[in-house]
Structures are given as structure tokens and as C-alpha cells.
Write a protein that binds this DNA or RNA. Structure first.
Length: 507
RNA sequence: GGUCCGUUCAUCUAAGGGUUAGGAUUCAAGAUUUUCAUUCUUGCCAUAGGGGUUCGAAUCCCCUACGGACUACCA
């Protein structure tokens, strides 16, 4: 590929970064890294009314957590600074003027009320009003007003916007790396506002100007931008920047798991999975939205899952770390259709990453769970417990559900199991078991097993009649790892205590 | 309503004219586990519909249906 690849991730700080946005960032990152290019974070905050405090910090923190790094951006600087559009404000007016001078744009003085009235008027006739070549002559703008009138209004400081003057009836070709060539007729497009009356550019102007001045080579963004891509292409032409126009790649959308439609903020907590990387508290309403991180997902699992939602390497491999993704990623293997989020598969991914961690790593994480429960235990012991139960959980927090009996005696016994397994002769058997275990000098797994086996053979009992009640006594139910291992780890004293307890509790 | 994009198992997807349409997740069954889980094996399940083109179509073309995005002085 010619020249150095430069891509950007350009979110708006209007709230927490949505998981679809994270995927867009990831694909940009993978593409940049693979080509030895640069990854840029640009903040598109041209809409002052939608600015949400903390959103920018949130975006940075979330991407950092996931291991998506930037070479340039608001938080790391760079030679194309500033990277926040509000900080670039002065330059846009000049570019808008350039378009007006070139006959590609014009001043429009219509007030929001004027436009609203126009829309209503059209609606009554079952038509849709569109500010374009067919209607602009009937509106209040620098194409209908005399040069003097326009100058007068500008001198008087009357509010105005700058609109793009879409040429009538020409075909605009957008060459998309994922979708191929998309052709749209210009008469279908409206004269988009490029520069707002508050002195700020709209997305369209700022985006093109910034991508050009920052020498962006590839624009990888969501499919929701496809309809406005023709405008962007024409804007490059209007500025005379066709030669350096970036290549476009419009990503398929992430859909709701149930029904249809774009994944939205509300879906997450409704369906029991996060739509945000990190937990977010809305500064205005104090409403809390859950995040992957807080829900116990590993960042590498989230990355892996997201990478495969809309892309695959064409092989049957499904587990990838970031460096493998960088190596294998390619835009032409991105699918065209939207992907639904699959909660079960997300769990599976996390499970795979959890199992792959060492017992010590898990112990490190699980220790925090224990701390919250005010339980202290030796690190080696905790690590051993983690190793024993990790195959059966998806999240670190679930280790507790599977292993609490390693730390505290069962507070109650599974009623259904008791009913089914606690027979009339069980108390007598348990009494014997207690005596046998109590008499063991060597409380190793082998000795525990051998002595109990010898006992059951001598009494002509099935092992189940001995082991299951013992398990209930130690664990509280019929689940958990190998019983000899549990008994050995608990130690003789604790085992005896738990047998006594169940003998007293269950009759 | 209009424009654009899309459509392979329930879900993520593979198969770039020739395969019994493959894998993964889920679900189900069996084996193993004296418990539960794991693990292993097996099974269920798909080319939206209709027309073409072709010896041959999931793949190319057209129509229909369905879904989505966009249609703001929001991004």
C-alpha cells in the first residue's frame, strides 16, 4: 500500500462508548497495526448541546482497558494537534468560506421556525420537504437574496448557516472497501448544513477537513454513515482534495440479540448483558449502566468476541490474542450483514480465557472476592481451590458459588438432596465414618479414600451410601470436586466438625 | 413515504459455479465421573420465496418478501 497508513477513531463525547463503537475502534486499531500505520483518537464534539462531562475520559479509559492504543490523540498529543474539534474551531469557518467562494456552498438565513413551517406545509400534502436544488430557490439564502442583502445580513450579525450546494442530477460514486461501489444520484440528497449558526461546523465539514488535514488514509466507520458518504465524497471534490481522499470502509452494524434493530443502550440491562465496556453512571440521572469490566469479563475475551462479530479469518480458529488478530485481520473478510450479539458465546469466550489463566493469576483475582467477604486464606490454598473449580465457571466471581465450602462450612443443606440421599441408616454410617477419619494419622487423599473403601466393603455398602452423605456434610450439596481432595484440604478437624454438625442438624 | 445497504442452522459464521452445505456457541442424548461440573462421542437444526443464465447455482442476473440504516443547525 502506498504511503503510510493513518486511521482514526472519532467518537462524540455524548455518553459512554457503545460496544459497537469499541468494535469500530478495534478494527481501526488492527488495521493500523498490521500496516505499521498510525492510530489516532479524535474527539468530535461539535455539538455543544450533547456534550456529556466525563464521556471523553470514559472513552479513553475503556479503550486503554481493552488494550487499544493510540499513536496520536487528545490524550497523547501528536503533530497534528489539536485532536478535539472544539479546539480546532477557528479553522472551520475558513474552509466553509472556501466552499462558498468556489460556488459549492451558500449562506442560508432560514430560521428553524421557517424550516419547521415548510416541513409541515409539505407534510399536509403528503410530501417530504427537502432543502435541495428543487426547493432552495424558494428559500431565504444567498442564492435568492441579492449580494447587498446578503452582505447586509452578515454585517448585522444575523444568524446564518452554510449549506452545501448539491449539484442537480449527477451520479456520485462511493468506492467502499467492504461493499464495493455504491452509486447515488445527487438529487436525492439534501443541501446539508456544513456550518451551524452557533459558529461550529457540523460533523460533515469538520470530519472532512480533519481527515484531510490529519492525512487520514482510511476511514473505517459504522454503516450508519454510508448514506452520507456521497456528501463526503463530493466535499473532497469541492475542496480539490480528490487525490488524497481516504478509502472508505463501512462496517456492518451490531444488532440486538432478540428481535431486530441496532443495539442500543437500553438493550443491555434489559437482556442481561452489558452494551458498554465499563460501568457508567449518567451524570444527570445517576442511572447506572453495567460494563463488561465490572461484570467480570476479561479484556482479552471482549476483544476476541468483538473481533469475531463481523469478521473471521477464514479458518476454524476462534481464539486469538491481540497480536494474532493484528496479523490476520483484513478488511475484505468483514461480513456485509449485521451481527447479533450472542450472550452465551460471550460467556464461552470468557470461560476459555479464564481456564487458560494460571491458578495463581486466578487466585490473585479471586482474593479480592474473598476480601469483600472478609475471608482471609493462604494464597497457595486459594490458588489450589481456583485450579480445582476453574473448569466449571465462566467468571471469577462464580468461583465463590462453586467453592465457598473451602472457606466456610455449609450453612444449610440442599433439601432435595437430603430427602433423596439421607436414608435411615445414614446417621449410623456417618458416625462410623467420623470415627474412621478421626482415627487416621495420615489424612492424605489416599488414606481417606482407602479407609472409606475398606469400610464400605466390610459393611457391604455401596460407596455411594458412604460418600454422598459425607459430601453433603462437607459441601452442603451434591456438587464440587473430588471428595478426597476436599476432605484433605479442609483438614481432619474441620471435617469432623462438619460431620458432627450435619448429624445434629439432619435427623 | 423515499434512498441506500443487507438476507446460509436459534446465534456467530465457512464454502469466492461442481462438497453428504463445514466449524463454533446454544440445546438434546449417550459415555465417563460413586456427586455436580469438566471431558469425550453423537444428534437436532440453514442456503427467505419465485424466476432466469448454466451441463451444473448458496455462489451470477432479475423480481418479490423481510430486516436494517439514513432521511436534524446529532454525530
Amino acid at each position: 500500500m502506498e504511503g503510510k497508513i493513518r486511521v482514526r477513531f472519532a467518537p462524540s463525547p455524548t455518553g459512554p462508548l457503545h460496544i459497537g463503537g469499541v468494535r469500530t475502534a478495534l478494527y481501526n486499531y488492527l488495521f493500523a497495526r498490521q500496516h505499521g500505520g498510525s492510530m489516532i483518537l479524535r474527539i468530535e464534539d461539535t455539538d455543544q448541546t450533547r456534550f456529556v462531562p466525563g464521556a471523553e475520559e470514559y472513552i479513553i479509559e475503556a479503550l486503554t482497558w481493552l488494550g487499544i492504543e493510540f499513536d496520536e490523540g487528545v490524550h497523547v498529543g501528536g503533530k497534528y494537534a489539536p485532536y478535539r474539534q472544539s479546539d480546532r474551531k477557528p479553522m472551520y469557518r475558513e474552509y466553509a468560506g472556501q466552499l462558498i467562494n468556489g460556488g459549492w456552498a451558500y449562506y442560508a438565513f432560514d430560521t428553524p421556525e421557517d424550516l419547521e413551517a415548510k416541513r409541515k406545509e409539505y407534510e399536509q400534502e403528503k410530501k417530504t420537504f427537502q432543502y435541495d436544488a428543487s426547493t432552495r430557490d424558494a428559500m431565504c439564502n444567498s442564492l435568492t437574496l441579492s449580494v447587498e442583502e446578503v452582505q447586509q445580513r452578515l454585517n448585522d450579525g444575523m444568524p446564518y448557516v452554510v449549506r452545501f450546494k448539491f449539484p442537480a442530477d449527477t451520479e456520485i460514486h462511493v468506492d467502499d472497501l467492504i461493499r464495493g461501489e455504491v452509486v447515488v444520484n445527487s438529487s436525492l440528497l439534501d443541501d446539508k448544513v456544513l456550518f451551524k449558526s452557533d459558529g461550529m461546523p457540523t460533523y460533515h465539514l469538520a470530519n472532512i477537513v480533519d481527515d484531510h488535514t490529519m492525512e487520514i488514509t482510511h476511514v473505517i466507520r459504522g454503516e450508519e454513515w454510508l448514506p452520507s458518504a456521497p456528501l463526503h465524497v463530493l466535499l473532497y471534490k469541492a475542496f480539490g482534495w480528490e487525490d488524497t481522499m481516504p478509502r472508505f470502509a463501512h462496517l456492518p452494524l451490531l444488532l440486538k440479540p432478540d428481535g431486530n434493530g441496532k443495539l442500543s443502550k437500553r438493550d443491555g440491562d434489559r437482556l442481561g448483558f452489558p452494551v458498554f465496556p465499563l460501568q457508567w453512571t449518567d451524570p444527570a440521572t445517576k442511572e447506572i449502566s453495567s460494563g463488561y469490566r465490572e461484570n467480570g469479563y476479561f479484556p482479552e475475551a471482549v476483544i476476541n468476541m468483538l473481533a469475531l462479530l463481523g469478521w473471521n479469518p477464514g479458518t476454524e480458529q476462534e481464539l486469538f490474542d491481540m497480536s494474532q488478530l493484528i496479523e490476520l485481520f483484513s478488511l475484505d473478510r468483514i461480513s456485509k450483514s449485521g451481527a447479533k450479539f450472542d450472550l452465551k458465546k460471550a460467556h464461552w469466550f470468557n470461560h476459555e480465557y479464564l481456564v487458560a489463566k494460571s491458578d495463581e493469576e486466578l487466585a490473585e483475582l479471586f482474593s479480592k472476592v474473598l476480601e469483600n467477604k472478609s475471608i482471609s486464606s493462604g494464597f497457595t490454598y486459594v490458588a489450589k481451590v481456583c485450579g480445582l473449580v476453574k473448569e466449571r465457571v465462566n467468571f471469577v466471581s462464580e468461583i465463590w458459588d462453586q467453592a465457598s465450602f473451602f472457606f466456610i462450612a455449609p450453612e444449610s443443606y440442599d433439601e432435595a438432596v437430603i430427602k433423596k440421599r439421607w436414608k435411615e441408616n445414614t446417621p449410623a454410617i456417618m458416625q462410623d465414618v467420623k470415627n474412621i477419619l478421626n482415627g487416621l494419622a495420615d489424612f492424605s487423599e489416599e488414606h481417606i479414600h482407602d479407609s472409606l473403601q475398606a469400610y464400605s466393603e466390610e459393611k457391604g455398602l455401596g460407596m455411594g451410601q458412604v460418600m454422598i452423605p459425607l459430601r453433603i456434610a462437607l459441601v452442603g450439596g451434591t456438587f464440587g470436586p473430588d471428595l478426597q481432595v476436599i476432605a484433605n484440604m479442609l483438614g481432619k478437624e474441620e471435617v469432623i466438625r462438619r460431620i458432627d454438625r450435619i448429624l445434629q442438624t439432619v435427623k
